[in-house]
Structures are given as C-alpha cells and as structure tokens.
Design a protein around this nucleic acid. Structure first.
Length: 309
DNA sequence: CGTCCCACCTGATTGC
DNA sequence: TGCAATCAGGTGGGAC
C-alpha cells in the first residue's frame, strides 16, 4: 500500500499523537511471518518504554523509544497511572539505551492510534497500549508488513549506510535529499530498466510503483529505458520530477487508491493528481494519447507513449 | 554481484 | 447472480 508520502504522513500523524507517552503493555498476534524479530524481543524492548519520536526512513516507520522495562522497576506500583509520577527517586536511572521499533507496512499495513473502546479491526497483529489507555495498532490483512527491533547501540557491521552504534538509516538513499551528483551515480552501468532501478530500495528507498510511474511521466522518460542509457539531462529532470511529486503528495496526505488511511483514518488526496497511474486507456492529460499499461519488473506500469521517450 | 521471477497473503474487482 | 481468475501501493530468496 504505502510509499514514501503515505509512510511519512502516517509517521508524522502517529508521532504527534504518541510522542512522550509510555507503553504500558504489548500484545502480538503470533503470526510468525509478521515478526522479523522474535515477539518476545519486541515485547521486552517496548514494554515500559517511553516513545521519543516516530519518523520515516525510506518506507519504514521508525519508533525510537527509551527503555524503561521491567528490568528495574520490579513491578512496584501498578496503580500510579499518572505519567511522570514519582518513579522512586532512589537511584538515578541507568543510562537509557535508545531502541528503535521498525514498522514496515508492506502492501496493506496500517498503523492506527485508537481509543480502547473502538473494536480492533480484523488482522490486527500488534497492539501497544499507552499510559492513557489509547492503543497503537498494527493491522495488516495480507501480512506483507514486518515488525522488528533495531538496537541503535548494538554492534553493527560497518557498511556504507550502517555505522556501528548509529540509528537505522535504511537500505538506500533518501530521494528527497540526495544530491544530483549522487543521483546520477546511482544509475551508472545499470542495465536494468530505469523504472526497476527507481523501485530498487537499496539504491533509492521510499519510491514505489505509483511515484515511479508519475515521476517518469513528468520527466518524459519511458519506464523501459535502460538506466545506464538515460542521459544526464534526463536524470536531472527525473530527480526534480521525483522530488516534486513526492513533496506534493506529502502535502496532500499521500494517495488513497483503495482504502489507505492515515493514523486518524483520513484519506490522502494525491490520487486526484495522478497523471498516469491507474489511467490505462484514458487520454494523456498533455497530448490526449491513451495511457498504456504494461508489465515491467512484475509491476503494472503506466506511461504515455507520446510524451515519454 | 546484477538481474529476473516467484512466493508470500487476503480481499476486491473483473470476466465468463 | 455466481464463481473463478486476476490484480493490488512491497519485499526477499533462489536461480541463473
């Protein structure tokens, strides 16, 4: 379901609602495929933790928490539900190690913040109950989504993107901030079609099927063109088009093509501005030629055979 | 290593 | 109308 603009909208919405709140309990469904880290590890990392922030990296939602789990309070008072209430001022808290909860929504994942009396939807796979009773719910019918824990200070293999002891940076580069030089370099020597390269998360992360098609249309480039043969001038246009499309979509709250909704259950509106995606057979908004739909890299691919070279 | 293809799932829509 | 085939915004693993 969600690509960069949708994930950004969801992460920002959830962040505004849950930042600084404490997670008092964690429930998980036991569906093994959903959990990239063991459920016990997720429950242990999050129970009692305070949410520092929720943000987007690529298509992944990253919830950073400060642990406060059962390790030291030893279940002293379960009555004191007031946040920030006296937590036995005997010792200074041990140096809190930030932990990151990674939520990938797959195709149909949703992250909702709900009042407890609202019945959980079908296919709810994780529930984080907050100190005020509200629940952060991960719902995912197709179960392509993944939940995992990333320990920000645990030893990490040193790679281009993952330094020891740093926070999660994702597999590729952020399309909104990548420089032109780096963008051009990404495609050098790649024989794969330009659209497949755009979808490759270890190059750029966050770009999915809708925004790849929309950016290629706006840049006037056919999706099947070999990446290495797209000229520098075209790549300059492509980067600008991609960034413009993503920014505009974020501004409109993402694209709701079926039942995508953000943390508050609101739809996005960028689908109104789709120029090719989902418009097979309809006239190109620039030249009137019917929009074609082909299969490329296993994905439905939309383009204007006249405007895109 | 780069690239292709399919499997992983459920639900909505299309087509006979 | 009914039911089966097809398709869906994403990834990750295996084959080549």
């Amino acid at each position: 379901m969600p690509e960069l603009p949708e994930v950004e909208t969801i992460a920002n919405g959830v962040n505004a609602r849950v930042q600084e709140h404490r997670i008092v309990s964690v429930w998980t469904s036991g569906k093994p495929q959903t959990f990239k880290s063991p459920e016990s590890e997720i429950a242990e990392a999050l129970t009692g933790a305070t949410i520092d922030s929720v943000r987007r990296v690529g298509k992944t939602i990253v919830m950073t928490v400060t642990p406060g789990g059962p390790s030291f309070p030893a279940s002293s008072d379960r009555v004191g539900l007031v946040p920030g209430a006296a937590t036995s001022s005997r010792k200074p808290a041990p140096p809190a190690i930030p932990t990151e909860f990674l939520i990938h929504l797959g195709m149909t994942g949703r992250l909702l913040v709900s009042q407890p009396e609202v019945p959980p939807p079908p296919h709810t796979h994780a529930v984080l109950t907050l100190d005020d009773g509200r629940e952060i719910r991960f719902v995912d019918p197709r179960r392509f989504g993944r939940l995992s824990i990333h320990h920000a200070q645990s030893p990490q293999p040193v790679t281009d993107n993952l330094q020891p002891g740093t926070s999660y940076t994702g597999p590729g580069r952020e399309p909104l901030t990548i420089s032109l030089e780096d963008f051009v370099t990404l495609f050098k020597g790649r024989k794969t079609p330009i659209k497949a390269a755009l979808l490759n998360q270890s190059l750029l992360h966050g770009v999915g099927n809708i925004y790849a098609d929309e950016a290629l249309f706006r840049a006037g480039i056919r999706p099947r063109r070999q990446a290495a043969r797209v000229t520098r001038a075209e790549l300059t246009r492509l980067r600008a088009a991609l960034q413009a499309v993503l920014r505009r979509a974020i501004k409109l709250g993402g694209s709701s093509v079926s039942d995508y909704v953000d943390a508050e259950g609101m739809r996005g509106y960028f689908q109104i501005e789709h120029k090719v995606y989902g418009r097979r057979g309809e006239p190109c908004l620039t030249c009137g030629t019917p929009i074609q739909k082909i299969a490329l890299a296993g994905r439905g691919t939309h383009f204007c055979p006249t405007c895109q070279k």
